[in-house]
Design a protein around this nucleic acid. Structure first.
Lengths: 204, 204, 204, 204
DNA sequence: TATGAATGAGGGTTCATTCAT
DNA sequence: CATGAATGAACCCTCATTCAT
């Protein structure tokens, strides 16, 4: 970040980052339960005690990773949306969903990690309090609905249902091709999303 | 059930049931990871070795519990439906959803247990193969869609989306009242379900 | 044995024999430490409790097997010797050694089992007390030396050295081909045995 | 040994040695099967986990002990031989055998441990690869035969037979006085060894 | 005799956490 | 800040043995 950073500080950040990256790698490949602190520090190349300088325990590092990764996904989708000239609300939401689905499809371990651990509560938390880690703003997505020319009965509930529908159906279709593979399923999903939006539209 | 059950077999069933009930109790209150075999056998009042006479390990008993409990929930909903005189397809599905939501709302630990562990894959399995434990037939719900006078583009995908939408939104609304409590959320959900059904209807 | 044996008694003998045969099979293929009572009774097709009707524990059945098997080996060698017309003492001893080596070579698991468990003490015991199981008489071999026209300084010590030399070198050469395979080693061994015998001969 | 050994490393060596010594003590008094890791760490005064820092399991520590102890025995015999002025080959071999028998006689638990576990394979291994533990060279004994002015048909086979004859007869005579006590048996044994050597001598 | 469900002590092993260096 | 040796509680699981049937 800063242009000049002392070597010692760099090492500090490097150690922490090494632990985060390694932990993510292990969590996604072996699962959280089967990953031990030993595994993490060995793979990260730091001493065991060092882990406890930066994180309280395994679940602390997991929570920090979830926030970080989820934030990253949304920021990528958001940036991609900005590069389009879509104006219609439905189109913009579908675009975001499609982009996120694409990211999950490209990185299935990421999907496993996120969907097993991300709840609307955490999502909401992130929406409000952006901590030091997540430089990205979920709020952007939220604003799309709120500042739309169209009005909705309850924008948050609408967003909630869309997010839950997308994330839970993604899990099954992408990872297990059940009840259909993702490409076959997409038209049904996007259709459903458009119906959800329309059903909550309030005529001006 | 059996016309005559020997004393020994009765005793066996009691032991097995004690283990199942205790395990469910502990899984739902403490979580599966934090529940140990020791905890289970202690609470069930049997010896440690006895556990291994009936179950391979902790995950074996968990799987048997999921199938058993999920089957039970559906059978209750199904029975309740049978006692109504609802004929309209949408109404019948909403009724089932409402009943299941009610069960989850009444027993929140059941909701935690089921939703953290039940995937569409397991659900589907149960739909097809009803083992000795689950005397109930998930298939009933499925048949409602298939044998409806109305035709649907893809009944399984429709059912899939409904189940996922209901179960994932239930989790957040019932347990955390986020983004709204379940009573406030229900109208939106039922509305959404009706929209989903209609959007997949194929005109005869 | 007896021509008429009641069915019940036959069953009794069958159960005991089944346990003995199964135990031997398992001991030689998996080792004694890794063989459990469970393994034995399962493979033998009897109930667990039945084991304890016939044997005190795993080591009891092992000891009975050793005596039985060792006795069997000697009786085979002895019978084969009787069918020859060898008269020279050295020749007769070499013949016995060769025959026993042959048996071990044909059944390597037998070799492992015997040599890991047979000590001169047990051997000696068997030589003296022939229990109900071993209908065969080790004493035959002993008598060869004692009743030879030649005299020896100490026939028992001579026999002892021959038996120990044969059995301990067999183990390494047959099972591991170390320091040479058995066929290559035999001439050296037989030569050595002849030297041992001659060195203890007392001139009349 | 090392010029300067850090306090930490010294401590490590002490822990490891404590485990080795305790394990040997228990293995020889109670047998390997009846010795548990618990026994070892309790007697050694270290925590259970510490055991696993240094050894993989019970059999790992056993193997390291065998190599260590066997090596030690030979080095003592070898050193004693060096202090004599024996030149004759037969005399030198008898001296070594006698010395080793003496060591076994003085420490019967050592004899039990070694003879139950040492095979020609392990012996040979040690002859070739001297690992960090065993600073001693079995090879010395081997060289006695190879570099003798006399020639032998096959020095390795000769050595093999001598070693097997000595070790297997020792076991019975020292521990059980069967078929005679060691002092009574020795003349026969040494005589037999001399015969073996002579029988393989090749005249120049 | 024969059974096999039930027992529970005790086995090996793991691993989060601490703390002296 | 960083280390990693040491800890020991707690884990899962086995299996010889018993005993009511």
């Amino acid at each position: 970040m800063a242009i000049s950073m002392k070597k010692v500080d760099l090492n500090k950040k490097q150690k922490r980052d090494a632990l985060l990256n390694t932990a993510f790698e292990l969590f996604t490949t072996q699962g959280i339960n089967k990953t031990t602190i030993n595994n993490i520090v060995d793979a990260a190349g730091v001493a065991k005690g060092t882990f406890y300088l930066y994180f309280k325990d395994k679940y602390d590092i997991r929570n920090k990773l979830i926030a970080h990764k989820a934030s990253h996904i949304f920021s990528i989708a958001d940036a991609a949306l900005a590069r389009t000239d879509l104006t219609d609300l439905e189109d913009r939401i579908i675009f975001l969903a499609d982009n996120i689905i694409g990211q999950f499809n490209d990185d299935k371990s990421l999907l496993t990690f996120i969907s097993k651990n991300l709840s609307w509560g955490i999502f909401k938390n992130e929406l409000i309090s952006s901590n030091d880690d997540s430089d990205v703003d979920f709020y952007n997505i939220y604003k799309i609905l709120e500042h739309s020319p169209k009005a909705f009965k309850d924008p948050e509930i609408l967003l909630f249902m869309i997010v839950e529908l997308v994330s839970s159906t993604c899990y099954s279709t992408i990872l297990y091709n059940e009840p259909a593979d993702i490409e076959h399923f997409k038209p049904y999903l996007f259709d459903a999303i458009r119906q959800l939006i329309r059903s909550q539209e309030v005529m001006a």
